[in-house]
């Protein structure tokens, strides 16, 4: 009963918006060709689901996100771990890392375009760089945050460096690493859309860009829906993985 009320309350606004659009359409309150009826959006949605175009473009974007995510994420993980463990390393590269981190990611686009061109390499580089910074930062903070007393346990047991890393440091910083991964996932999705809006001939961002130029509002909206849904699904997947890895800890807390 309570859940039902929650569900209904959550649907109130979306339904109101749809009704509002329908009313505008029925009574022809606007002459703007930009305005589309809910029905049309729905039809476009069905059309696009039936065809390949949406899925191909979505697939291309997902692949780009994936590659950039893996490359940038792995680099960030490695860099962040080393920076977290070694104060010497941190003292050398920390300042420049922090300085570069201040640059808003979108500001790198022109530089990368000049250096790498506008092909696949550019998109992957850009996505990987956006993934790198938050991943490195979160990992580094996670590793630094490992409690001293846990490290002392390792020291008392005369663990070597590798053992210290694999049995204490990495597991202890896992929650922070996952936080980083989730952050990276949402940032890389933004990055892929950005990269494709700027320079691409395929991918979901490009599809939106083209639809916009042809004033196909319905297609743009469906694309938005698709991007949102894909990002959301991947986020849930990641959460499941996190849940699996940290399953024994939640109870202990």
């Amino acid at each position: 009963m309570k859940k039902l009320i929650t569900l209904i309350l959550g649907l109130v606004l979306p339904v109101l918006i749809l009704i509002g659009m329908e009313v505008v359409a029925r009574f022809e309150l606007t002459t703007s060709q930009l305005f589309v009826e809910p029905k049309v959006i729905f039809e476009t949605l069905l059309d696009l689901i039936k065809g390949d175009e949406l899925f191909i473009n979505l697939g291309i974007s997902t692949l780009r996100v994936f590659i950039g995510f893996v490359l940038g994420g792995a680099a960030g993980l490695l860099f962040g771990t080393v920076m977290g463990i070694s104060r010497t390393f941190e003292s050398y590269v920390g300042p420049i890392f922090n300085a570069l981190r201040q640059v808003p990611v979108l500001a790198w686009i022109p530089l990368f375009i000049i250096w790498v061109g506008i092909d696949e390499g550019f998109k992957i580089t850009f996505i990987a760089v956006t993934a790198f910074f938050p991943m490195a930062l979160n990992t580094c903070e996670g590793v630094k945050g490992v409690s001293k007393s846990h490290l002392e346990v390792g020291a008392v047991l005369e663990f070597n460096r590798f053992k210290q890393l694999s049995t204490i440091i990495i597991p202890a910083s896992l929650p922070a690493i996952f936080t980083g991964l989730r952050l990276v996932l949402s940032i890389t999705w933004m990055a892929v859309v950005g990269a494709e809006l700027v320079a691409s001939s395929e991918g979901i961002g490009y599809m939106m860009y083209r639809a916009r130029q042809q004033l196909q509002v319905d297609t743009v909206l469906v694309c938005i829906l698709a991007v949102g849904l894909t990002g959301y699904t991947m986020n849930i997947l990641l959460e499941q993985i996190e849940h699996y890895f940290l399953r024994r800890r939640k109870v202990a807390e």
Partner: peptide, 29 residues
């Protein structure tokens, strides 16, 4: 909590869309 239930789902749904994805829509409108 009533307002949360009212606005929360829509807010969270809209938030899933990468912010740059709204650019074409904003330009159109």
């Amino acid at each position: 909590s009533t307002l949360e239930k009212l606005f929360g789902p829509l807010f969270n749904a809209v938030r899933q869309v990468p912010i740059l994805g709204w650019i074409p829509v904003l330009i159109l409108i």
